[in-house]
């Protein structure tokens, strides 16, 4: 009997502990939930709702169904903007995906000055994105005073248009974006590399594997999960590109660097087509939500396999 009481008492103590813990967990989460509701969930839902209305400024006037979506997608610029956005993604994969991996491997292999090099390499990440864009805009100056053209001149070459060359404007913007973002990605890969069992490297070295073979046969399979996740995250991030074309080219030349994100900004803040902005925002959201679902599924699958 006494043992039963004891069990009950223990159970009730445990229950109250869980209750207390449950309440305090929620209390801790409340500020974040409020902020997420106000700055993420509510705007997202309101954006969708307003996309179905004729807007006057930021005030919904009357319901118009999918009219805003039809107008946005019928816009003669919609397809070129969508393709430009895909170009950003493509170039960012070509230019921006491998450098942080390679740098992380190089730093990981270093014996001396590792921390100093890491600090030095991380510097671009602490500069605000707009400042980076303006810095690179100056470097890309198409006249003789642009830094990159000064370098070209040293080799006897004539000044190049850089951002003014519509065929490659997106590439040059992506280079500046990569310079800003590679340290963060590099750190991620570096931490993954730190988790790789050193004995594998030792065994590979004994078997006669050099740096490249070690990277391919040992490092690559070990960090594949992080690589794939970062790949998807990069696609999601670059798909929303807005501030770089805004600060560096204004979407030019001849719309060559305008993205869907930049068009959204123009709808919302320049030409005051709030309904269109909301509709385009929802379209981008839908595309990204599919990518995010894919990302989470992939993440789960990788966690299961690791």
């Amino acid at each position: 009997m006494s043992s039963n009481k004891c069990k009950k008492a223990k159970k009730s103590e445990k229950g109250s502990f869980y209750k207390k813990s449950f309440v305090s967990s929620w209390l801790f989460a409340v500020p974040a939930i409020i902020l997420m509701y106000l700055f993420i969930w509510r705007p997202t839902v309101m954006g969708f709702v307003w996309s179905l209305f004729k807007m006057k400024g930021y005030t919904p006037k009357f319901y118009i169904g999918i009219q805003n979506y039809v107008e946005v997608m019928r816009d003669t610029q919609f397809i070129p903007l969508f393709l430009n956005t895909l170009k950003y993604v493509l170039w960012s994969i070509i230019v921006g995906f491998l450098p942080p991996v390679l740098l992380a491997i190089i730093v990981n292999e270093m014996v001396y000055f590792k921390q100093k090099i890491m600090t030095f390499l991380y510097l671009p990440a602490i500069i605000p994105a707009i400042a980076v864009s303006l810095l690179w805009k100056q470097m890309y100056d198409p006249t003789e005073i642009g830094l990159l053209n000064i370098i070209l001149a040293k080799f006897g070459m004539s000044p190049y248009q850089w951002l003014g060359d519509g065929n490659f404007t997106i590439l040059w913007i992506v280079v500046s974006m990569t310079w800003k973002s590679f340290p963060g990605a590099m750190l991620l890969y570096y931490s993954a590399l730190q988790g790789v069992n050193q004995e594998l490297y030792e065994a590979a070295t004994i078997d006669g594997a050099g740096l490249l073979k070690r990277a391919w046969y040992v490092t690559r399979p070990q960090i594949m999960g992080v690589l794939i996740l970062n790949f998807v995250r990069q696609i999601i991030g670059v798909f929303q590109v807005m501030e770089q074309p805004l600060a560096m080219t204004g979407g030019g030349p001849d719309g060559a660097s305008a993205s869907l994100g930049y068009q959204l900004y123009k709808y919302g803040f320049v030409t005051q087509r709030v309904g269109h902005a909301m509709a385009l925002g929802t379209i981008i959201f839908v595309v990204l939500i599919f990518m995010t679902i894919f990302y989470f599924r992939l993440n789960k699958k990788l966690e299961e396999t690791l």
Partner: peptide, 15 residues
């Protein structure tokens, strides 16, 4: 909106 479209034309003829 008009200015934005004309910007593109100007950039094109200058480039």
């Amino acid at each position: 909106d008009l200015y934005g479209i004309l910007d593109n034309c100007i950039q094109k003829v200058l480039g």
